[in-house]
Design a protein around this nucleic acid. Structure first.
Lengths: 220, 220
DNA sequence: AGTGGCTATATTGTCGACATTATGAGAAAA
DNA sequence: TTTTCTCATAATGTCGACAATATAGCCACT
């Protein structure tokens, strides 16, 4: 689970987070219609706050809204997944480049320490790594870019969609050790302040990741 | 002016477009506070629709909102401009790559025709090209990527911020002919289905554009 | 005079009711 | 039987009022 430093202060925030979680986890299934009145009774809040929550979900591309008709949970498709990873490749590639430029030495050291601890857990046989570790790694790179647009588009937007695909298409799977090595190489490039290499490696990393998921998707 | 195929159907849409335009054009100055009650009387709509419009503006990064405090028009800064162009470089580079892959021959031919007509106008001494022409060109590349995420992030989001910087920092300026040549080379790469080159050229094009604006900004 | 806390006020957050639009069922006509 | 029109219904869009919160000003106290 993503460790949320985003805390709900208003009632609409809370409803938004709950709804988002329910959608990502598949509790509200893909393609399902979101009735404002229904949700307002279910979550025990006014229709106005449900409306605001749905609007925010729409900007995350987790639901699609049509005027005077309503909102539906986004439909998952192979094409959608491909498009998602195309954008991730561009955005996270740039994030890695900027991380190599702007991350402080302390941040880089902390990230190397993170990878070390992951390595021990993987070596110890824990499958913990796959989800939380991967999320944590990419999260640090993105925030390390110090670019508010990159941060908001990826962390507030695309990552939830990525998680939705992973959860609902049952991507718990492997690619642990190979992904780990790729992470290592990326961090090394960042530590060497090699922007060009950091970007290339990150793009390859995401491309491999996409191919892996696509392969699984076609076999299922 | 951007030719809007986005048409307002609901009242909130109209208010959103009006507000967005007023902000981009500087009619509502940068840093200005947006009072919901005040705007609701000004635009003669309910506070609820103003609220929704402001929320949408927040997702475009045109205003910043704080809970229980309100929304302010975003402040323009050199750092903000740099970050904006960093994201543009990543996103539009990928868009050019995908355009080379997915655009139909007819679309490419139409784009070449567009450049020809621009060339005639530039040769004829019209300064028309700078704004509308540039917008049109980039618009076609992005839509040519057929990637809904790229399209929405760039066209619904970043481009308005770009325009806001251009308008408010008085970037009417030159770079017409050189930018035109760069456009030509990009279209040629796309026509040759050379994804790699299309992306590289687009990234360079945006990098140059950024440097040009930064230079002006420092001189002013 | 400066600082701390309190109150008044204005703004945002939330709510329920009304207006408007889309959609499906059913009747009438071909 | 099929098609089209009408109308009922249920949803979204919009509104004004109330509740909760932040901010500024004022007063007391040191």
């Amino acid at each position: 689970m993503t460790l949320n430093n985003e805390q709900a202060i208003t009632s609409a925030d809370k409803t938004f987070y709950q709804l988002r979680n329910d959608i990502v986890e598949g509790i509200i299934p893909s393609g399902c219609k979101l009735s404002e009145t229904e949700l307002s009774t279910k979550y025990e809040v006014s229709r106005a706050v449900v409306r605001e929550a749905i609007n925010r979900l729409a900007t995350c591309h987790l639901v699609e809204r049509k005027a005077n008709v309503g909102a539906r949970v986004v439909a998952l498709s192979p094409e959608g997944l491909v498009q998602l990873y195309q954008v991730r490749e561009a955005l996270e590639g740039m994030a890695a480049r900027l991380a190599a430029r702007y991350m402080s030495d302390e941040e880089i050291a902390a990230m190397q320490g993170l990878l070390d601890s992951h390595f021990n857990k993987v070596k110890g046989g824990e499958s913990y790594y796959q989800e939380a570790g991967d999320v944590d790694f990419h999260y640090r790179i993105v925030t390390g870019s110090k670019n508010s647009h990159l941060i908001s588009v990826l962390i507030d937007g695309l990552y939830h969609l990525v998680r939705m695909y992973r959860v609902q298409l049952g991507m718990a799977g492997p690619r642990v050790t190979t992904a780990f090595d790729e992470h290592r190489h990326i961090v090394n490039a960042i530590a060497n302040r090699d922007e060009e290499l950091a970007e290339i490696l990150m793009r390859r990393h995401i491309l491999y990741s996409k191919n892996n998921i696509e392969k699984k998707l076609n076999h299922a």
